[in-house]
Design a protein around this nucleic acid. Structure first.
Lengths: 226, 226
DNA sequence: CTATTTTGAATGAATGTTCAACAAACGAGT
DNA sequence: ACTCGTTTGTTGAACATTCATTCAAAATAG
């Protein structure tokens, strides 16, 4: 017997890892292509070239172009989900801090940069006509939305506000997504910083007893935001 | 009489009108295809079939696929611009009424329906990599944005609010765009009605001295919103 | 030596564009 | 009113190109 792995490893870790690394490499190249050329112009050849590999390689690691794109979208979805969950956890138990953390996380360099935003938008454009994309395309998914509703409810009770929690959560998360869209288009002089300022203006206006504007001095237990 | 134009019109009106009608017919078929199949899957053949015409006809009325798509985008842009300008004019001189009218106009059936929203999103997905699209793709363009800033300024002065007008205008218009995005995705149970409610919650929260929520009784000169 | 990964050319399908032929509308001359 | 030649609009097949996919052969790892 020439059993190659007999004395090295029961699980062929080297192989598997290499395979996963290559998949990631191709996914990154796909994001590049989507950002640079858009969904319609993204070709298998462009992805392979971007990764510095040969033409047929993508069909080996992913079965088809369709599956490559789904894997890419899934990758971005997982990354975004992990990002906001982590930000929320790090904020502790105070709903006001959690909300501020979620908003700030949305404009963090790690997830909010031209490359990723452009890739997101490329998928958005195709989502309506592709059920497979649709589920993954709301990076702000049902779980995210529910969290926002809960936070709005908690803040409303604590601050005795008059709004409807569900409607306000919708308005808030829609604004975050709209700001992403503006950042991506990049026509106006909207930056990550000015977008975050706008979002914080919103928080200060809607939850005046929980947030105060950057320059001001925090009163009571209100949080100062940039 | 069967000499139709001899004694009727020196300019061959019938001809010209027919040509424009056909162009519109093809543009509508393009919007259909974009909404049904997405940007990447929209083909000349599909557009021609959708209009019930033969394959070569699009290249006759528009020179190329690219020009057809630009004309379609321009058409949607013009329609949207005319819509919000008209809504604003009809609202009179009061900034509070103008703002409410603009927000309501955004969720009017005429511009806010699955077909049109899907077509907008299809273009958004390609805008970043195509300068020609980019200029037209912000349906909410510089003029619209400036108007929002002015209205926010006017309301701020009148109501002695503490926010930054420019930032608040950005947050507001971003929220409207974000709500469009949610409507288009159609994953959650967001409807035109619930989107408008959310937007109005925003107005009531940010401009409390100008807007009161639907059920409440208007105090002073505040406007009741749904 | 065997199994896995990579290559790059071949293949076939899809699609935008062109174009020669055809149809209809039109204006002028009779 | 009735042709006739011209312009305009339309058709559908032919063409060229692009691109995803396949696969036999080569390279590499085990």
């Amino acid at each position: 017997m020439n059993t190659p792995l007999k004395d090295v490893a029961p699980e062929k870790r080297g192989r598997k890892q290499s395979k996963e690394v290559r998949r990631l490499q191709l996914i990154e190249a796909t994001i590049d292509s989507l950002a640079r050329r858009g969904y319609a112009e993204t070709t298998m050849a462009d992805v392979a070239d971007g990764a510095g590999l040969s033409r047929g390689i993508v069909n080996f690691h992913f079965e088809s172009k369709e599956k490559l794109l789904v894997a890419t979208l899934q990758h971005m979805y997982d990354e975004y989900s992990a990002h906001w969950r982590s930000a929320c956890n790090r904020a502790g138990d105070d709903p006001a801090r959690q909300m501020a953390a979620l908003v700030a996380a949305d404009f963090d360099r790690a997830v909010c940069n031209r490359r990723k935003l452009a890739a997101w938008c490329a998928f958005w454009g195709e989502a309506k006509s592709r059920p497979t994309y649709q589920a993954l395309c709301g990076a702000r998914d049902a779980a995210y939305q529910n969290l926002f509703v809960e936070l709005c409810r908690a803040l409303k009770e604590d601050g005795a506000y008059g709004f409807d929690a569900q409607a306000m959560a919708l308005a808030l998360s829609a604004m975050l997504e709209g700001l992403w869209l503006r950042l991506m288009m990049g026509t106006e002089d909207v930056t990550r910083e000015s977008a975050l300022v706008a979002a914080n203006e919103f928080l200060a206006a809607v939850f005046p007893r929980h947030y105060v504007r950057g320059a001001g001095v925090p009163e009571g237990k209100a949080i100062r935001i940039a």
